[in-house]
Design a binder for these strands. Structure first.
Length: 562
RNA sequence: UGGGGCGUCGCCAAGCGGCUAGGCACCUGGUUUUGAUCCAGGCAUACGUAGGUUCGAAUCCUACCGCCCCAGCCA
């Protein structure tokens, strides 16, 4: 944990836990779990859940948190997702130690509890088709009707369930259902399905051992109880499932009854958070993969340059409540800026190069200028930057003429080159179309590490040596969508209609040579531009940087006003 | 027109009957060889609405309004 992270504010779940602790409810234990289904990559919403569950375990004496894969639907799951999820949780900074579990570990026990339910007359084998089950379920305003198979004898149910497990029946032909209340105002209590038949799928953990798979509503409470979970935290859409969670545990012989508590999921503006939609973005090639730096996945944020600490800080700041929310991107960006401002080395990189020739600087001369890695943290040391007769500056840092507000280089004007000399623009060379080709400048040798005498130079711009600088590919990312809530807009056929066509720009930059040794994962502030990280595809002979986030830019605001 | 939730500043969010925490964003100034950072200051006398209880209500009560979730053999 970094120094930036301090005591987090309380929230309603902590209050519940503290009340339980005070009442010695679970023998003083706090035991949570993070239970992802391995059917996709984790996203920032999962990060909130991870920080919550593992954070609680960390903050209470003796607290522990399990990692459990909710792998009851083999159709959509695979081992690659399991590995990616483990990697992401660890990367975020959390440790499940020896508590790695799979719901599939409990298939045999689960089967036993299902038999118990049948023996108690609380579950039955139903032969209705999926369509019929839906019809019999009724609607939100009308009660359902009881299945004609609802009153089968215990013996018949037991026999049938055994034969189902033995593989005698086809997919979809029968299910095991809980026998609760077809007239319940809560849809989840209208004899929910407990088991379905699935032949021919190879489960990533259990292979072909089973042809029946338990449903979430049956599996989850039992898995929690088997692991001795005290507080089972999930998102709001499961609120209606809580009566069923409790019903399952109340009707089987198990001596642990965790408390399910629901909180609202995280929503971020200008992106989507549902696994279905993220999968679609990947499958349709809209993004380069789950780790595309524009994705709100942990892998995407990592590749974008976000640090684990910045994501943890973000999760702490958004808090835990039951109210619907849509958090601004600015909140996330502030967290990474805060981290990187303090911890990232500075470097000079020119993203849109314009050649500058210093006419009074000797052609063959190369001066190595010392430049601190950080303006405030001297302990980070410094590097040498070559200064030569031909340089590059950014096109945006020169204007032939401009008003007083513009503090950069203008014709006949002076500007400070960062960590180097003050230069003056003597001449502007253009082509026939009037396009500026290069600038002819002079430098003042007396201005290295010193202010010029008798005049004030207001601007400072970054630069790179033309001969010693290094080419680099820089990927400039913007938000993936143009709409703050792409999946909430019902007026379009698909959320894809809101894709931002300009979410990625690739530019060829000239960067200072010290960056040649940068390796995957290194993060820098390119001064006056933003924070950048080295992409996994980067090689010493072909550097690739991703822009994590821009710097705050008050100049852009000033310019916008005029 | 069933059930379950939620409504405090542009966005998050504290608050749990006694002067509306805080963060992000935004606005002013100052410092600055990054128009960054940093520092100082500003930013809710209608807490969804209307009634009520109370000396006192965002907090308690009543009614209403708005938004979200639920009719998978998904999780």
């Amino acid at each position: 944990m970094s120094k930036n992270e301090h005591a987090v504010p309380t929230h309603f779940i902590r209050q519940i836990i503290e009340r339980d602790l005070a009442a010695d409810k679970n023998g003083g234990r706090v035991h949570t779990r993070f239970p992802p289904e391995p059917n996709g990559y984790l996203h920032i919403g999962h990060a909130k859940s991870i920080c919550l569950n593992f954070g609680l375990a960390r903050d209470y004496p003796g607290g522990v948190c399990n990692l459990r894969f909710d792998d009851t639907n083999p159709h959509k799951e695979n081992e690659d997702y399991v590995n990616a999820i483990k990697h992401d949780v660890r990367w975020l900074g959390f440790d499940w130690e020896d508590r790695l579990f799979y719901a599939s570990d409990y298939f045999e026990k689960l089967y036993g509890f299902a038999v118990e339910l049948i023996q108690a007359g609380k579950a039955y084998v139903c032969d209705l088709t999926p369509e019929q089950i839906r019809e019999y379920r009724g609607t939100l305003t009308e009660p359902g009707r009881e299945s004609p198979y609802r009153n089968r004898s215990v013996e018949e149910n037991l026999e049938l369930f055994k034969r189902i497990r033995a593989g005698e029946f086809e997919d979809g032909s029968r299910v095991l259902r809980a026998r609760i209340d077809m007239a319940s105002p809560n849809m989840n209590m209208r004899d929910p399905t407990l088991y379905r038949i699935r032949h021919g799928v190879i489960h990533h953990q259990t292979g072909e051992e089973w042809c029946i798979y338990p449903m979430y509503d049956f599996t989850h409470p039992i898995s929690d109880a088997l692991e001795g979970i005290t507080h089972s935290l999930c998102t709001l859409e499961f609120e209606d499932h809580r009566p069923l969670y409790d019903w399952v545990l109340d009707n089987i012989s198990i001596d642990c009854h965790p408390q399910q508590i629901e909180f609202s999921r995280l929503n971020l503006e200008y992106t989507v958070m549902s696994k279905r939609k993220l999968t679609q973005l990947v499958d349709e090639g809209v993004t380069s993969g789950w780790d595309d730096p524009r994705m709100p996945t942990i892998a995407g944020l990592r590749r974008r340059g976000y640090t684990p600490a910045s994501i943890r800080t973000f999760c702490d700041r958004v808090g835990v409540t039951k109210s619907a929310n849509s958090v601004e991107m600015g909140m996330l960006e502030a967290c990474i800026r805060e981290d990187l401002d303090q911890n990232a080395r500075r470097a000079l990189a020119v993203l849109d190069p314009l050649k500058v020739v210093i006419e009074n600087y000797p052609g063959e001369q190369v001066e190595m200028l010392d430049a601190p890695y950080h303006p405030k943290d001297g302990e980070m040391g410094s590097r040498q930057i070559p200064f030569t007769r031909e340089l590059y500056i950014d096109r945006a840092d020169f204007r032939e003429e401009a008003n007083r507000k513009y503090k950069r280089l203008v014709s006949g004007g002076e500007v400070r080159l960062r960590n180097a000399y003050v230069i003056k623009c003597e001449n502007v060379i253009k082509d026939e179309q009037g396009e500026i080709l290069e600038l002819r400048c002079s430098y003042d040798p007396a201005t290295l590490g010193a202010n010029p005498e008798g005049r004030k130079v207001r601007g400072v711009i970054h630069w790179a040596s033309a001969s010693r600088g290094v080419k680099a590919e820089v990927r400039i990312y913007d938000r993936l969508f143009q709409h703050p809530a792409p999946d909430a807009d019902k007026s379009v056929e698909s959320f894809l209609a809101h894709l931002n066509p300009d979410s990625l720009h690739v530019v060829q930059a000239i960067v200072e040579p010290s960056l040649t040794s940068a390796v995957e994962g290194d993060r820098f502030q390119f001064e006056r531009e933003g924070y950048f990280c080295v992409d996994p595809e980067s090689r010493p002979e072909h550097l690739v940087f991703n822009r994590t986030v821009t710097l705050r830019d008050s100049w852009a605001k000033i310019e916008k006003q005029s």
